[in-house]
Design a protein around this nucleic acid. Structure first.
Lengths: 189, 189
DNA sequence: CTCTTTTTGGTACCTGGTAATAAAGGCTAC
DNA sequence: GTAGCCTTTATTACCAGGTACCAAAAAGAG
């Protein structure tokens, strides 16, 4: 058995669910052409919860409105969030985000998604961006779906370091290192 | 059997679910002290969907809402522009730009003003942010007027370096070094 | 050609329901 | 009284979308 197919399938599975978290295992068997048991093993390996749990998580996030994310002001759609650890958000570039001339996204929209995620992932009353070092790897074009992944690298004390990578499909389009100030109170994790 | 208890129960049921839509029928039997069948008949009468449907609806709403936000073409009013030299823009923070909790502006709005200006100041068909190194010196609060000043430090070749300082009054609140890609030499096409 | 990993298949069980049907409780009308 | 009616409760069958586990087949790797 080639090592690739499995990893490719895992990537594909993650991508599909990031794009559309409403897919059941049965629908995934159709999309990936493997048995339902394989899908379930894959989800297990990738630590992706079942459909109902995913929906519940989404519902909870939108319901709470407490926590560090007033959802309406967040750029992008946060589909996974492990406070103080990591997070994933989706954002699709459409007309209002791009230069009309070239169809290329304005940098600050790409930044906004990454920044929103970096702030959201910090489990604190108040979290503010202190500084950032960012790189636009390749232009993002109209219609492209950006998947931003944030990883908290260090969160001791008042400053947390968060690394964010933004992808379009497999391709990295943006990378940023954020330093986030936190209100200091509840750091325990 | 009193006619009232039923209507009262219906009201109570609606109230409970509005307050906490995550309640299962079983939990409701405990709260209302009737059988689970009664709860289900009540939900039927009141046209309240089952728990899973409620969660799904909430998840769907949170999924396709967020995408849009008031980030239009250029952030800030450009009041002075000397192409390839310098520029100034103004931007006032209001409710939609700040964390409702703290009244502090979200970093990406401050960044967006600076980024817009850095791109605008470059005299070329196409100008894109390649990378940036930014620092939020102090938080910007609701109602504050930000004055961003951009200076082109070097513009030879395909990359231009632009330095942006943002002030509220005399106070510097943000500073960034941008590297901007330009489509070619300024004299071309 | 073995040995291990991966994939598939199947069963039992769980949650939070729907749907249908029957039975019991309570109240009114005659 | 008791018949009629609504409300409530109980029972059973069924479903979706899983989990958990076991066994066997398929596919590589050595």
């Amino acid at each position: 058995m080639e090592r690739l197919p499995k990893r490719q399938r895992h990537q594909e599975l993650s991508r599909l669910l990031e794009e559309n978290p409403f897919l059941t295992d049965r629908e995934l068997t159709r999309l990936l052409k493997v048995s339902i048991q394989t899908i379930r093993l894959d989800r297990l390996e990738l630590a992706i919860p079942e459909l109902r749990e995913r929906l519940k998580l989404m519902a909870e996030r939108s319901h709470d409105s407490v926590r560090s994310l007033p959802l309406h002001e967040v750029i992008g759609d946060i589909v996974d969030l492990q406070l103080d650890k990591s997070g994933i958000s989706l954002f699709e570039m459409n007309e209002e985000h791009v230069f009309s001339r070239s169809g290329i996204a304005r940098g600050h929209h790409v930044f906004a998604q990454a920044n929103s995620l970096a702030v959201a992932v910090i489990n604190d009353e108040i979290a503010l961006t202190a500084s950032a070092d960012i790189r636009f790897v390749r232009p993002v074009k109209l219609g492209e779906k950006c998947i931003a992944k944030a990883y908290v690298r260090s969160s001791g004390g008042q400053k947390a370091k968060v690394e964010v990578f933004t992808y379009v499909g497999e391709e990295m389009v943006f990378q940023g290192n954020f330093v986030i100030y936190r209100s200091a109170a509840e750091s325990k994790t």
